[in-house]
Computed example of a mutant assay.
Amino acid sequence: MNTVRTLASASILAATLIPAAASADEVNVYSYRQPELIQPLTDAFTEETGIAVNVAFLNKGMIERLEAEGQRSPADLIFTVDISRLAGVVDAGLTQPVESETLNANIPAEYRDPGNQWFGLTTRARIVYASKERVAEGEVTTYEDLADPKWKGRICTRSGTHAYTLALVSAYIQHHGAEEAKTWLEGVKANLARKPQGNDRAQVKAIWAGECDIAIGNTYYMGKMLSDPEQKAWAESVNVTFPVFEGAGTHVNVSGVALAKHAPNKDAAIKLMEFLSSPKAQEIYAADNFEYPIAPGTEAVDLVKSWGSFTPDGVNLMEVASHRADALKLVQEVDFDG
């Protein structure tokens, strides 16, 4: 029997798993990541410990669901991507701290909450995809450079209100302040080849189609496109470049995990968290998702390493997340998506 019971929604999970009958041999996960992306990890954990893992995939509404369930929630762990989503469940009071020497040893300080409310598992860089035909290697070096008029009519990006974009704008605010961030956003908007639209892969497709020359996206999409016969040509039309903030590093974001506030299987859930932080598990997770493991001594797979090396920005991601409201305000003020 498969140890991961994938359920269509959290409401089904809540109906079938009764907190009062919580068992020490299972963990219930609410996940923004699709179950097939984490199943290799949960299968390995179950094989090693005998503890079953039940995963409920949610497209949206994680916070609202947990708030509605309250103390009767069956959720033990919360899996999600992007620092703004991790910070969101923490700010909503839906998590609890975990004191674990194993987690602290495996997860660098900049990739975990200072209050131990969440822990990063893998990272992805927010990079620039550049046309091999129309952009010289080394022509894009900084995020600040994206506002340079030389890129007028040449940039594609997804919506300014998307979590990934807001995280990058938040990081810009962290480094330069809100006033300079607004000027930068206005400059980037002036350089857009088209109205922000689609996902990160759609931007690379637009480069391949000649609609723009550079695009902002996450690194792991390169791996996903190369794995898809219909999208491989898009990926092969671009180079991956790693811009930096002036005087700092490349903006990165995380996939992460948090212990739910009312976890009925707390001890088993912490065991799963510690397993997920292990070098073995992180390398499995990173390989399946074309991301970067962060435990000491771990490495990305060869395909990911082939895109180049970079120095991650050293700012703690909770500091970046603290600027999210200001980032959204600036995006709206400059009418970035207009």
Rank of each mutant, 00 (worst) to 15 (best):
Y221M: 13
A248T: 07
A235C: 06
K182H: 04
F242D: 03
T241E: 14
V169Q: 03
D213P: 02
E211W: 00
N218P: 13
A181H: 04
A233Q: 08
A206V: 02
L166H: 01
A163M: 05
P196V: 00
T161N: 05
Q203V: 10
N199R: 12
G198W: 01
D213V: 00
G217P: 08
A260Q: 00
I173D: 07
C156Q: 02
V240M: 14
M222Q: 09
A258C: 11
D267E: 15
E246A: 13
K261P: 04
A263H: 08
L185M: 14
I173A: 12
A260G: 12
Q203N: 12
A206D: 15
A206K: 03
H175M: 05
Q174S: 12
I173F: 08
F245E: 02
D200Y: 07
L185I: 11
E180P: 00
L226S: 09
N218D: 15
G160K: 03
T183G: 14
T219K: 03
W184R: 06
A263D: 10
G249D: 02
R158H: 13
I207N: 12
Y164S: 15
T250R: 00
K195I: 06
V257C: 14
L168P: 09
H162M: 11
K182C: 09
S237V: 07
A235I: 05
T183A: 15
R194M: 11
A260D: 04
Q197I: 08
V240I: 14
A260P: 07
H175V: 12
L168V: 15
S237G: 03
V254R: 03
G223W: 10
K195W: 00
V244F: 03
G187S: 10
C212M: 09
P243C: 06
L185V: 08
G256Q: 04
A163L: 10
G217R: 08
K224E: 14
G223S: 02
D213E: 14
P229K: 02
C212I: 05
G187K: 06
S255G: 08
P264Y: 09
T161K: 11
L226K: 06
W184L: 10
E211C: 01
M225F: 06
K182R: 14
V240Q: 09
I216Y: 12
V244G: 01
V254M: 15
W208D: 04
K205I: 04
E246R: 08
D267C: 00
Q197H: 10
V204P: 01
A167L: 12
S159E: 08
A190N: 13
H262W: 14
K261H: 09
Q231I: 02
N239V: 02
L166E: 06
E180R: 09
A181P: 07
A171D: 14
I214A: 05
A163E: 13
A215K: 02
G256I: 05
N199S: 13
H251A: 11
E186K: 14
E179A: 15
I207K: 13
L259W: 02
D213S: 07
A171N: 13
Q203G: 15
N239C: 00
A190W: 04
N199L: 11
T165D: 06
E246M: 00
A206Q: 11
T250Q: 01
Y220T: 06
G256M: 03
T161S: 13
